[in-house]
């Protein structure tokens, strides 16, 4: 694989440098006076606001409570997308007829923004949990399908032929050849999918204004409090980061087992 693996120490050094560089540029920009606080509050100010939000409820709840309710919605929508999307993508990669039937529908729907579904979600589900889940699902679903499908299609033909010679049926080919062969592609898809699902959250939380990190940010914006908005962004960033870390751990584990 590409370059040699870094030593643990070097990896941490560089990662820390990356973090410091990011916050350094931000702090310098904010401190330079080139931009107003309204445009870009300093990292310290945002950190202070962040801490305050974890202690004192804003729009009814603390930051943790908002995050928790967002995460619940996200987990349901994303879980549904994975459970339906990956099998569908693999099946489409193997059965031509299914591919032909589903692809046109799918190709049409996946360009439609998750938040375009907001009016329908409100119409169909009202204040129920179904609305937000529908919207997150519509964001998270396409990458699951596409990456599973393309992963399955690009599995080397000789593996499939070998399996067929050994008398493997549809089920075994899909689970034992296509699935392992498309794991890298699927995991890349999961990471994108989780990202998109998270992104659809704000749209989802425009439906019912009672809780959630998206709601917190919208309210922060109408209070002209950029530091609240950025605290929300950071909270979303941290959770997104954690989800990505989990998926990468999964990726590494599968790679190790497979290799």
């Amino acid at each position: 694989m590409t370059q040699a693996v870094l030593s643990r120490r070097e990896f941490f050094r560089l990662t820390a440098a990356g973090f410091l560089g990011f916050f350094g540029v931000w702090a310098v920009l904010a401190a330079s006076g080139l931009v107003q606080t309204l445009f870009l509050p300093s990292p310290l100010e945002v950190a202070g606001k962040f801490f305050e939000l974890t202690q004192k409820p804003f729009v009814g709840y603390t930051l943790q409570q908002h995050l928790l309710s967002s995460f619940g919605r996200f987990a349901m929508g994303f879980g549904l997308a994975v459970v339906i999307g990956i099998p569908l993508g693999l099946l489409m990669g193997w059965f031509r007829w299914l591919d032909r039937i589903v692809t046109p529908l799918f190709d049409a729907l996946r360009f439609v923004a998750p938040i375009a579904w907001v009016p329908f979600a409100a119409l169909w589900f009202g204040t129920g949990i179904g609305g937000p889940v529908l919207i997150i699902f519509s964001g998270a679903f396409p990458p699951c399908v596409i990456n599973a499908y393309r992963g399955a299609r690009y599995v080397e033909v000789r593996y499939i032929e070998a399996a067929q010679t050994l008398g493997a049926g549809h089920w075994r080919i899909i689970t034992e050849v296509l699935l392992p062969g498309s794991i890298p592609s699927i995991v890349a898809g999961l990471r994108v999918s989780a990202g998109l699902g998270w992104q659809s959250l704000i749209g989802a939380e425009l439906i019912v204004a009672s809780s959630g990190i998206g709601y917190l940010m919208v309210k922060g914006q109408s209070n002209l409090s950029t530091s609240t908005v950025m605290s929300g962004m950071i909270a979303i960033g941290i959770v997104g980061f954690a989800i990505d870390l989990l998926l990468r751990a999964l990726e590494a584990r599968i790679e190790r087992r497979g290799g």
Partner: peptide, 9 residues
């Protein structure tokens, strides 16, 4: 850090 932040945000 930046990636998971929704475009809407």
């Amino acid at each position: 850090l930046l990636r998971p932040i929704p475009p809407l945000a």
